[in-house]
Design a protein around this nucleic acid. Structure first.
Length: 580
DNA sequence: GCCGTTTTCGGCCCGACTGTTTTCAGTCG
């Protein structure tokens, strides 16, 4: 049976190719396909089980798209998509990845110069054929030549892991904060929404001084390799690593409208602007204002702009037009977990792990300093041969923990381990030894290439193990480096409901695992989570803030997170899950 | 292609920048 995400990716491709046919990504047909793709992607009911009539009742899906979905489900094909694939082969579509080449230009290049791929474009550039086309001159030709040469480093679809983008953004923010007159510098866009990968870094500078000072300072930053746009209030540059950084300078009174606008997502903003129009208003990056006369209704804070539209402030992580507007209108926004709710950390390493950097004593002191009511010390199990702790080492640690517990009357210390889930679902040590531990996190650290059936079976077997309270970094992915293991997410969520085993939300920026889309799908299920740092030194304990933001993206509510519970509730859950 | 307390047709989000044009089209976000 075809999955919803496969159907959604067909619809997304339909939108991409329709862009070429329509000549614009803003064409209504294109937007309709995009909306339909988003709706299907997020739906919990399999579309394969739905009638055309039921499909057409979904938001953004009408009779035409419903028929296309049914056709795909029934025949495995979508005739319209196949026609478009013939009209626009992949090598031709590749042309639109070049910055500056949109659908109109690509089609003109083919119609006028018979260019069908990037190689053909290069030849035409060498022959200086582009400058003879309508609306094109030598300058445009040169711009396209430059863009082709750096395809792969600055292409439109290039995305950077959030870990790398955050580092670049931090430097830009620090440098621009020092410019005279600047009172505020904030990263916006997908960085503020905390997506796993970032396209461009968007930054707003609020300044009471001369905006041109900010712009000059911006394009002179050491990180800047090339200036790709330069205006009085808006500029764009490419960083040394090829990331695009967009900068806007705004007045203090515009900050709220600007923050909403530049945070996005685009789909979220479109919904807000539609709501503004219904009221006879207009919403842009400067203000929410009356269409007639332009009297400003709200602009200085996000809260005021949302409130004027009849909405509560919407958390940045869920601004994707995937149901948050409807929830806000119905006063049913989720009670998202926040940093201040955390009462403990359930995945902490010490120097007993080969890759742990600091002593048990230091890690506990740092946890206590964070105000935790409980903590689980979870060094690697022995099956991780280069990093794991032996039984003797764990027993010795257990005695040390017992002594240290006296120093922390307000913090319950659980001594456990991060167990390794073997390819067959077994974990380290033997059941008798494991029963002597207080807590168990079980994680996949090997055999990443098993098929879905086997991966799913091993994870579920670990969940059913009475020594396991939490499944660590569910998919094992490393963002930008390694894909996650192939899992039947539905089956895993069912096992989590059945066993009470928590799914970890890991705070390492290259993990953010379980991924937000998995968390979102767990929303309708009776699943609990743990928000963990997976710290290997005291500094990394702060990683929980990353996990919190990823949890919020996945609509995870406070009540679902076991380490927001009181010590009493938490210990009851631990005891309930241990021993099955 | 979708949608409707302006409902079955006529709308559909908004603006900066660039390069090419003397008023605008294309691209981008």
């Amino acid at each position: 049976m075809i999955s919803n995400s496969e159907v959604a990716s067909h619809l997304a491709e339909l939108a991409r190719l329709a862009t070429l046919e329509e000549g614009s990504s803003n064409a209504f047909r294109v937007r309709a396909y995009e909306t339909a793709a988003r709706t299907v992607e997020l739906l919990d009911t399999p579309v394969a089980d739905m009638s055309a009539k039921e499909l057409a009742a979904l938001r953004g899906v009408g009779p035409s798209t419903a028929a296309k979905i049914r056709e795909l489900v029934d025949t495995g094909r979508m005739a319209r998509l196949e026609e478009l694939r013939v009209m626009f082969p992949a090598a031709f579509v590749e042309l639109t990845r070049i910055p500056g080449v949109g659908p109109k230009t690509a089609v003109m290049l083919r119609d006028e110069l018979h260019i069908n791929d990037v190689e053909g474009l290069k030849a035409a550039l060498d022959a200086q054929l582009l400058r003879g086309l309508p609306g094109m001159g030598a300058k445009t030709e040169e711009n396209i030549r430059t863009a082709v040469e750096r395809l792969g480093i600055g292409g439109k679809e290039r995305r950077t892991p959030i870990q790398d983008a955050l580092a670049v953004a931090r430097d830009v923010v620090a440098a621009l904060s020092a410019v005279p007159g600047v009172i505020r510098v904030e990263p916006m866009g997908s960085l503020r929404r905390f997506r796993e990968t970032i396209g461009d870094i968007d930054v707003i500078v609020v300044s009471t001084g001369d905006p041109e000072d900010v712009m000059r300072r911006f394009v002179d930053l050491p990180v800047v390799r090339e200036v790709v746009g330069y205006g009085a209030r808006k500029s764009a540059v490419l960083s040394a690593s090829g990331m695009q950084i967009d900068l806007r300078v705004m007045e203090p009174s515009q900050f709220g409208a600007a923050a909403i606008y530049f945070t996005g997502s685009k789909a979220h903003n479109i919904r807000l602007r539609q709501m503004a129009i219904e009221r006879g208003w207009i919403l842009n990056e400067y203000a929410l204002a009356e269409s007639e006369g332009g009297a400003v209704i709200a602009s200085d804070t996000e809260e005021r702009v949302y409130a004027a539209l009849g909405l509560p402030w919407i958390p940045t992580e869920i601004r994707e037009d995937t149901g948050e507007i409807e929830a806000a209108l119905a006063s049913e926004l989720p009670d998202l977990v926040a940093d201040k709710h955390l009462r403990g950390d359930l995945h902490v390493h010490t120097s007993l792990s080969g890759d742990g950097q600091e002593s048990l004593e230091k890690m506990l002191a740092a946890c206590a300093a964070r105000g935790y009511a409980y903590v689980a010390i979870t060094d690697h199990g022995e099956d991780l041969t280069i990093n794991g702790a032996t039984r003797q080492q764990l027993l010795a640690q257990r005695r040390r923990v017992a002594k240290l517990q006296d120093q922390y009357p307000d913090m319950t210390i659980l001594q456990g381990a991060e167990l390794n889930i073997g390819p067959d679902g077994s974990v380290d040590y033997d059941p008798e030894f494991l029963a002597g531990l207080d807590f168990g996190v079980a994680s996949v650290h090997s055999s990443f290439t098993l098929d879905r059936t086997n991966q799913t079976a091993r994870v579920i077997a670990a969940m059913r193990n009475p020594a396991v309270n939490v499944i660590g970094h569910l998919t094992g992915r490393r963002i930008g480096h390694r894909p996650g293991i192939d899992l039947d997410v539905d089956a895993v969520l069912s096992a989590a409901e059945e066993t009470g085993c928590a799914l970890e939300i890991n705070g390492h920026l290259d993990r953010l695992d379980a991924p937000a889309d998995v968390l979102r799908h767990a929303r309708e299920r009776d699943v609990v989570f743990s928000i963990d740092s997976d710290a290997h030194d005291t500094r990394e304990l702060a990683n929980v803030a990353n996990a919190v933001r990823n949890a919020r993206r996945g609509w995870v509510e406070r009540k679902r997170v076991v380490n927001t519970w009181t010590a009493k509730q938490f210990v009851r859950w631990v005891e309930g899950t241990r021993g099955g």
